[in-house]
Amino acid sequence: MPVRDKAMTLLSFMRPARPILLATLLAVSLGALIFFGQALISHNADNQLIDTLLSGHDITIADHAMPEVLFARAQFLMTHNKLDEAQSLVDKLDHGADTPLLTAAQYNLANARLRKAFDFIENTRIDQAEPLVNLARAGYRRSLGIDPEFWDARYNLDVAMRLIRDFPGYEKTLGDEMVAKPKELWTDLPGKPKGLP
């Protein structure tokens, strides 16, 4: 029997199965279409939420919102001086989000704290600035722990660390002597805070 005839026989055997295969393929692809379509629509709505939040309008968001939405709302809170609420949202990112998002959110929150600390320092309220700077430093360090190549976080950590120098509190043999002299404390600041020598 020539090959062509064998192929014809095979095809004619497949003929009864063809509608079943096609119907199955149709059902599966329709299911996938519904799945992806819904994802597209809901992500589109989420992205509009993000746009609204970033343009400076507050929206309440669901507890189980997408991490990107949580981040956008946290960003809104950071820029509107609600750092503690922003912190609780950033903490939520710690569970579900992919690490780049968490790294960026922690970095932005640390930036917000540092900016607030700058304002305090300019108004010579240094005791209020200090805890903010320390929290900012911890935030940058966490970001860098996840992504050591995050150079912006390194840079800003450097700024924060020069504001308040470390005191080697324990084990003096480790690392260099680091006695922070008062005049070194504010090397980065424009002039000295008013009221101080």
């Binding site: 279409l33 992806f36 993000i50 930036n111």
Partner: peptide
């Protein structure tokens, strides 16, 4: 002093490339 800091990382939008690709492929199928 605010100029000393490197800027914030802008919060990203949700990446919809996979959604679109999924819709196109399953739609064509």
């Amino acid at each position: 002093p605010q100029d000393l800091l490197r800027p914030d990382t802008p919060p990203p939008h949700i990446d919809q490339r996979n959604d679109r690709l999924g819709v196109i492929i399953s739609g064509v199928l």
